[in-house]
Design a protein around this nucleic acid. Structure first.
Lengths: 198, 198
DNA sequence: CGAGTGATTGACTTAGATCAATGACCGTGG
DNA sequence: CCACGGTCATTGATCTAAGTCAATCACTCG
């Protein structure tokens, strides 16, 4: 997912950065699309205003993520992007992106590959959300994130993990300790290990 | 999302169909990837076996969906695909897909565009799942699916919609009738209209 | 006309959210 | 070097909204 994996070096050099104050709009519905944005720091929300006048949030993007990939392929944005916090963003201008893809088909292919992986990953997360039981959901999360030796590599805190899987942190703690008591996992200072069932 | 939107005609002609019995494997982890699969009928699950030996379902695909887009870009599958029901699938062989993309850069671009849209759509659905309150979730769903005149186009039944937004159908019915009583929506034989707030 | 399914509503249960309190750990600034 | 503010991790008590079970009616399809 990190942008650095698929954007050609040349393109990264062309990118320009911009600071956003909290609440400032990066772009608005129907603005002309200019390119691909990467969030460097802070959080930016994508939202629309619905028929009854309320704002509906489509997505909140954080550092390392790109937004508006789809808008590369359309002339106008179809949502608003507004900074939730003070934020720094980087712009990869549309025509540079496409000319890079033309010059370097591998880059284009890498881009597709990244998107395809994201699709798989997001589908998996939705599947996870379909699991109602907190315990089962945590099991799913652990299983998906476990290496072949059963060790789970946590990026960030448990609180972050709780948010990602859609549980409150309290419930995650409880589920983890229940799994530990049941002998399904073992924990030691920050690492979790999935134990092989007999 | 329908495959027909982005696959060149020529490619569609080359595709071969295959029937799967319920429980039959379409492919297995570490098999050589052969191409892109489209589900024509039935349901196929993508799953892996975790470190403790349980099967974890990554995704369940239904008619009209494609699976293993990401595997186009890798030599081996990294999950199993198993028919949940009797199913019919269609194969677009990998090298044909890529040669079609080379011959017709527009097709390649369309493919990327489809993937990018899927990413946006999936992110939106995850955002929706972050809303805990059933009523708010239904509001979000209605707002996202409403046309500019506030009319909501339902594909399929309300039960389907309930499944998509991650609620039981009973809860969806109740939330809808609560919204109707509150004057936020109006319903008449199968159609829902979002009323403008004053 | 009868079986099957969707839509709807009621009654009840439960699991997860919420509120609250505590200890561990960290960086930091005096 | 240590006191202090902040966040994470953890656990307990309580509440509530969503899930579950169940019954009914409308509709469609063969």
């Amino acid at each position: 997912m990190p942008v650095h994996d698929w954007l050609p070096d040349a393109l990264r050099k062309i990118a320009t950065e911009r600071e956003l104050k909290s609440g400032e709009a990066l772009f608005r519905l129907d603005d002309q699309t200019v390119g691909l944005w990467e969030i460097v720091a802070g959080r930016v929300r994508l939202s629309r205003v619905d028929a009854s006048g309320r704002e509906i949030v489509l997505y909140v993007a954080g550092p390392g993520e790109t937004i508006a990939e789809a808008s590369l392929f359309s002339a106008r944005y179809h949502c608003d992007a507004i900074a939730n916090t003070k934020a720094r963003v980087r712009l990869y201008p549309k025509h540079h992106v496409f000319s890079a893809f033309e010059r370097d088909p591998k880059a284009a292919r890498a881009f597709s590959a990244v998107l395809a992986h994201q699709v798989m990953n997001l589908r998996m997360r939705i599947e996870q959300r379909n699991i109602r039981s907190a315990r089962e959901r945590v099991r799913h999360f652990l299983a998906v994130n476990a290496a072949s030796d059963g060790r789970i590599l946590l990026t960030g805190t448990l609180k972050d993990a709780a948010a990602e899987i859609g549980l409150t942190h309290e419930v995650l703690y409880r589920a983890l300790s229940a799994l530990e008591h049941a002998g399904e996992i073992r924990r030691s200072r920050g690492t979790i290990k999935l134990l092989r069932r007999v």
